[in-house]
Design a protein around this nucleic acid. Structure first.
Lengths: 211, 211
DNA sequence: CTACTTTCCGGACAGGTGTCCAGTGAGGGA
DNA sequence: TCCCTCACTGGACACCTGTCCGGAAAGTAG
């Protein structure tokens, strides 16, 4: 895997520095306009393909064809099929607004506000949601890296919602419940809506004693 | 997929009833002695292969070779690689003893007793554990079916441990936390031991208000 | 307009997956 | 004893994955 160049663009990507003697941890240069357009069309095509054929039916080659791009080009930016669909999820996450402030809310209410949107983010597109869940659980390094970003993002979102006063165990417990909810929903036992309710209930139990 | 004959033998498989108009849901006849030996050796070989090469390095053909069996034979019993390694986990689960009674214990203590063993079941073989986690999250019908069995098994174990008096939401929340713990541990953020501690903490929070 | 770099193409490649099927051989029943 | 069933064989198949590489094409100078 020759370091898929997709650093999920973010300020701070060293432009020309940090060369040499560091085979791993790629330079992660930013994407030029054309490159960004290419990965954008790849992501869009992946979403379309996912809607039509689901995760198992998705093929990197088909996504590339749909995006009007050669397969090898797709593999330039995404190290694997799973990396591609994880990126779909990650982009949706980042588009999510911050949880409503609600300063007077209880701890549980704040936790719910932070988590519920995330679960419902893809609720109306189960095929897409299940695909993302499946892809995110892979062991490829690219996916792993993105997953850690996502995990960190959620951790910060939750921590920020709870405020500094919350007991540390509460945060961990909520993250456990959140992960469980996403995975169980991805497996189709319950709809995402019902799972969001269940997660809400769990959050209230977890925060209950600490009010 | 021509119905892998592995019904994970269990009494109660309707013998001749419920026929017709149901192409799915195979007859699920039991395995003969020789068949059982074959699948047994396949499972053993899978474990060995998993220990040596991990999930990604495991090949159905290699497992078959190791078990002294033709690849096609392996596919007769297991519809996929993931089905095979999920079966590994399922067999270990079933070998687990019932949680210690402890009649005077708190709700949280009983929940922990029921869940902790399950998390620690494969704790000393991380490669194996991660493989099982990865395999179980697949969408193949065979895996799905086995997964539902496993989910039901855990549900009953938990429900039995908590007793009939426990609030229904508590059970759901614990299941969420358990799933989250297994998945997160499978991803290697924390060791299984530490994750078991975290799950314990979550269980106490969840049961705390309901004591 | 030319030279050079970066991006992308297209196609071949080595593996793995799951499927299929004609055929072999050992065990059980008549 | 013969035969027949059924588990298993072995190898070919279609398809997908991720990798590699020579060369076309698009941009950016000079």
């Amino acid at each position: 895997m020759p370091e898929p160049l997709l650093g999920t663009a973010e300020p701070g990507g060293v432009p020309g520095a940090a060369r040499e003697a560091v085979p791993e941890e790629a330079p992660r240069r930013r994407l030029t306009g054309r490159q960004a357009a290419t990965v954008g069309s790849l992501v869009e095509a992946a979403v379309a393909e996912l809607r039509e054929h689901g995760y198992d039916g998705l093929t990197v080659r088909n996504v590339a064809r749909r995006a009007g791009v050669a397969p090898a080009t797709a593999y330039t930016y995404f190290g694997s099929k799973d990396h591609l669909v994880t990126e779909v999820f990650w982009r949706r996450l980042r588009a999510l607004p911050d949880p409503a402030p609600g300063p007077g809310d209880s701890l549980a209410a704040r936790a719910v506000a932070a988590l519920r949107d995330v679960v419902l983010l893809v609720a109306d597109e189960p095929a897409l949601a299940r695909a993302c869940t499946a892809a995110m659980l892979t062991s490829e390094p690219d996916v792993r890296h993105l997953r850690e970003r996502i995990g960190g993002w959620i951790h910060r979102r939750l921590a920020h919602a709870l405020g500094p006063a919350a007991a540390p165990g509460v945060l961990g417990a909520l993250e456990l419940a959140y992960t469980g909810a996403m995975v169980q929903a991805g497996m189709g036992h319950l709809t995402y809506e019902r799972m969001a309710d269940r997660l809400t209930e769990a959050a209230e139990l977890i925060c209950g004693g600490t009010a």
